[in-house]
Computed example of a mutant assay.
Amino acid sequence: MFTNNDINFEALKRKAYNGRWATLEEGIIPLTAADPDFRTAPEIEQGIIEYIKDGYLSYGPFSGLPEFKKSVAEHFNKEKHGDFSPENVLAVNSAAQGMYLIASYVLNPGDEAIILDPVDFLFKKSVETVGGKVVLCPVDTTTGAIDFEKLTSSITSKTKLISICNPHNPLGKVYSKETLKKISEIASAHDLWVMSDEIWSDIIYDNKDFYTYSSVSEEARKKSFTVYGFSKSFGIAGLRIGAVLCNDQEILEDFTEKSNFNSTIEGVSTLSQIAGSVALERAKPWYKEFLNHLQNNRDLAFNLLSTSEILQPSLPEATFVLFPKIKNGMSSDQFAQHVLQHGKVAVVPGSERWFGKGAEGHIRICFSTSKEILEEGINRIIASF
């Protein structure tokens, strides 16, 4: 199901945007945007077809279809130590939109939000878009460890939010229950909100346990939002479907109202919600095979890079990206340009634009493709020097 023969390259060249097959010249291998090269689960395709068979595509409930909210809550409770009811779930147009809406809700112009450095650019973008000020908290690029001393000393009277990425993109770190508890103690002592982006929480290797942030303490439960999405684990990025979860029902209702979901200004495609609920209820066998394939690819990519003189990788505990350190002194942008030109491989540079200041000197390699494409891509990178 996840071999090179299962990839429809013609379809990818027509449909896979965001720095991937549809945007690059013929002959270039994209190991860029975190999007799978494989078609989505047949159960999801079938679920969408079944839903539209009667010809009705009516308005859905403002906060999301009951089956969507129920499947997301149950998924978190079974797989991530969560304690959510369906009412604790709001359907949103992607995890990225969820992050922006939370920033809008929590921050006034001039308020400060602490984010990890490096981390995906959407954290910074969502804070700055609503007029907030970003304060960076360093993360060790090898271990993913958070500098708690710096985190605590960064808090001022203007701080309103701590945003975490768990599992961490691009470092692939899964934060332990103890680490999350520590964050909740710091946040509680200063009466801060916490946003936990958990879009990668289905792509975890070696059967490592995952705790959703709000499950780790009473403090975490009281004042936090969790963001979830389907694009990584189920390959449906184009459907723009995600969820915001919050254990405090009154807060979530207020959030829903202030985010304009209690009107038709905002709202989520019912087809996308059907795809999401079918993914969680019927496509788990597909997903487990996909995860197994990804773990094999992770090990392959790590081993190939470890023996090279060019890049020094760390083994990710989660996600389908590697974030190796550049060993030859090139900047991230120079390296990415070099391998594009001389190796015909596209990678994401660890530049400030994409991941913050702490990412410089690294590149990000996505490995959610076939073994053959991955091997060819990494060998081309190594051979281009």
Rank of each mutant, 00 (worst) to 15 (best):
N5A: 15
I7R: 13
E10T: 15
E10K: 14
G19A: 14
L24C: 13
L24W: 10
L24N: 12
E26M: 08
E26C: 00
A34N: 13
F38K: 08
F38L: 12
Q46R: 06
Q46C: 08
I49S: 10
E50F: 03
D54C: 12
G55E: 12
Y56S: 13
K69A: 02
K70S: 13
V72K: 00
V72N: 00
K80E: 04
H81L: 05
P86H: 05
E87N: 08
L90M: 07
V92A: 03
S94L: 00
G98Q: 02
Y100Q: 05
Y100I: 05
A103D: 10
S104H: 12
Y105A: 02
L107N: 01
G110T: 03
E112D: 07
I114L: 15
I115G: 02
D117I: 06
P118I: 09
V119D: 02
V119G: 01
F121S: 15
F123I: 06
V127P: 00
T129N: 14
T129K: 14
C137H: 02
P138M: 13
T142H: 15
A145T: 15
L151T: 07
T159M: 11
T159D: 08
L161S: 03
I162V: 09
S163E: 10
S163T: 04
P167M: 14
P167Q: 09
P170H: 07
P170T: 10
P170Y: 08
V174R: 02
K177W: 07
A187M: 13
D191P: 06
M195K: 08
W200Y: 15
D202N: 11
Y205N: 10
D206F: 10
D206E: 15
D209L: 00
F210D: 01
Y211F: 14
S215M: 04
F225K: 01
T226P: 00
V227E: 01
K232G: 08
G235L: 06
A237E: 09
G238A: 09
G238R: 09
G238Y: 10
R240F: 02
G242A: 13
G242S: 12
A243N: 06
V244C: 00
F255V: 03
T256I: 08
S259K: 03
F261D: 01
I265R: 14
G267V: 04
T270Q: 01
V278G: 06
A279H: 00
A279M: 02
L280D: 01
A283I: 02
K284Q: 14
F290E: 06
L291I: 13
N292V: 07
H293A: 08
A301D: 05
A301C: 11
N303E: 11
L304R: 14
P313R: 15
S314G: 10
A318I: 05
K325F: 04
K325S: 13
G329M: 08
S331F: 01
S332M: 14
Q341W: 01
G350M: 04
G350T: 05
G350I: 03
F355E: 06
G356R: 05
A359I: 05
A359M: 05
A359K: 06
G361M: 11
K371V: 11
L374V: 12
N379I: 02
S384T: 05
S384P: 03
